[in-house]
Design a protein around this nucleic acid. Structure first.
Lengths: 211, 211
DNA sequence: TAAATAAGTCACTATTTGGTGACTTATTTT
DNA sequence: AAAATAAGTCACCAAATAGTGACTTATTTA
């Protein structure tokens, strides 16, 4: 026989594959539409499955959403393996590049934008866990590199970074829907985004110089 | 007679008063809950009126929401009459106080927070109009005071302010739901907020010094 | 191969949603 | 005071919502 009974070429019924289909359906809906269209019927329809399966596998839509959230892995992309080993000047240049890359990453990634938005809109344990993971990730950088460099001003440095990072988040979210201008800067154009990038670089430079 | 027929002490039927009740119901729902509970049935219930009235007065829930949005007047509170006439140093001190006041204002005002969030979540003409009004408001300040002061760097200044203002928005929204820490700063505590305020002041100072 | 288990389908319920037509009643106009 | 207009009530509809029990069928186990 060409094919064995134990491993059929493609199973028509497969728990794990079906679960993945549902998880990907959630991502698809979130990416394109908003959260208002995120109902159990819609998810089942997009996944091409019966909604009963959602109850079977995840207990409820909430369970599915929680598992979707914990399956996300945005932050490890930012840091990850490609971390340098040397950080001259308290990571001045590294931090600058990281912030600029993040500003672009959020812009390019609609799913990430929606998660950011979700975190501002709804209380959900899985989202808090995600936030905690992100914080823990940043803490490595802060404690290992910038805290020692800034000494007594370490907390002041953290506060400045908080404002700057929060700014990149908000501007990207704002640009997505409004498209229009913010403080007279057109965030929909590459020229406008370039101005923001220069401002980010400027603020980081001044922080490393002046703190 | 004690009371005339023309002006009854309290009319049981009054178009304007009823419209206001509906508008205030929208505000109440938005303030406390989110947008997910903002249905026509709920609005009618909170207002203590029949939903038919919403169709009568506003044509639809959308019409009511649009009128609610255009009834908002957050921005004029910020500027308004209390504008000084002299702006030394390109409004350095004035801008700093304004940003800090705004950071606190957003924190204190849940309805404003929800509108900010709404602008990030949904496309709606009335919201764009609101945004345009806000922009026009800021433009007066930018064109009249900071543009002349910064000359060739006027646009760079605008970009910096965009980042800073966006940062205050996001941090306040983030603090509202997550309560937890951002970049290691606990935004729920007065101590953490104080650190953010100092960071805002620092960034503005460095911008006026270094641009 | 037969029995057991798990995957998936389908039809159905109860509740809630937005929306409307017909009605009553208060207020204004004549 | 009578007629007209507008405010407000209520019962009802169609569609969509979340959720479930009974069923069929594929896959695995014995």
């Amino acid at each position: 026989m060409a094919t064995t009974k134990k491993t059929p070429p493609v199973a028509t019924r497969n728990r794990e594959r079906s679960k993945q289909k549902l998880l990907r359906a959630v991502g698809k809906i979130i990416k394109t539409g908003g959260f208002s269209t995120l109902g159990i019927n819609r998810v089942a329809e997009v996944a091409g499955m019966d909604k009963k399966m959602i109850y079977n596998y995840f207990g409820s839509l909430n369970g599915l959403l929680d598992e979707y959230i914990s399956s996300l892995d945005f932050w490890s992309n930012v840091k990850g393996d490609k971390l340098p080993t040397e950080f001259p000047n308290g990571g001045h240049n590294f931090v600058k590049q990281m912030i600029l890359a993040q500003f672009d990453y959020v812009h390019q990634n609609p799913e990430f934008q929606k998660i950011l938005l979700w975190r501002l809109s709804e209380e959900r344990d899985a989202l808090k866990t995600l936030t905690a993971r992100q914080e823990a990730n940043g803490e490595v950088l802060l404690q290992g590199i910038t805290d020692p460099h800034f000494g007594d001003n370490a907390e002041a440095y953290r506060a400045v970074m908080a404002v700057i990072i929060a700014g990149t988040y908000y501007l990207n979210l704002f640009a997505e829907l409004n498209g229009s201008t913010f403080c007279g800067i057109d965030l929909a154009t590459t020229g406008g985004r370039k101005k923001i990038e220069e401002a980010l670089a400027f603020l980081i430079d001044k922080t490393y110089e002046g703190l």
